[in-house]
Amino acid sequence: MKTIVGIQHRSFFPWLLMGPTLAILLAVGLFPFGYSLYLASTNIVLSKPYLPRVFMGLQQYQDLVTDPDFLNSLKITATFTISAVFVEFWAGLGLALLFKRTIVGKSVYRLGILIPMVIPPVVVGLIWKYLLYPHSGLVTYFTTQVAAIFGLPPVPFLSSPQTALATLIFVDVWQWTPFMFLILHAGLSSLPNEPYEAADIDGASRFRVFRTITLPLLKQSILIALIIRTMDAFRTYDTIAILTQGGPGNATQTFNVWLTNLGFIAFDASRAAALSLIMFVIILVMSFVFIQIFTKTDPLLER
């Protein structure tokens, strides 16, 4: 007689199931990683094969970290990622909570809300570029009209270092709140009923129910939504490249924009590789911390 426990004893079995995945990921993931390590240890500029090769050791990393652009990009990337994910999370959670009510026309609302996330990021960038275009942009036009009523100047959406980043954050929020909403909405609609009934009997306040029952039960969904969004927001490129190209000045030069400038404008493969590894470590640590926070505090999730 076979039991699942029996299968479990054959320790190769899970590896067999995981084999294809691991093989593909190794094939596609390992070489780039190793090659980046190699690149970062030398001084290869792709457009200048005639420059003498030198072993750089850790020099590339050191140069990057001491570059004033590094702190600038760190600050911008952190601001972008944290604010975008923060707003997306709360807006998505709020919407998801609203959807727990019985509402007439729910699926129409839901469909509308999901639209931005389905559109390719490059097209989202182009759409907002159009909406924010001088004179002919829909948003530019109406905000200018409204501002004029209050005697204010037009809003410099993309053209002022103080506001360009906020505009980019808004566009990210516009596109990705639906994702947060979707995951949390799905999580919410699958919560078990018993704890709520118990709370009902206890007469707990609505906020307390939310804090002590809903949030903890939602943890798995929140973890997935937050990890994926944080990782992706950190690496956002398409929309920024189309809307501001890192400008004005370098006010929106996130790590990924800087990386692209190093890799594809300066063609400095080594410097770019070093930067990408630094970015990798940052994302790695971030995700690790997330997972630790979420699993350590919830015994239910430790399997």
């Binding site: 100047p153 037009p154 809003v155 410099p156 053209s159 002022s160 501001t244 004005p248």
Partner: peptide, 8 residues
């Protein structure tokens, strides 16, 4: 020049 042309 037009206002807000810093990133034109």
């Amino acid at each position: 020049t037009p206002r807000n042309d810093g990133n034109f």
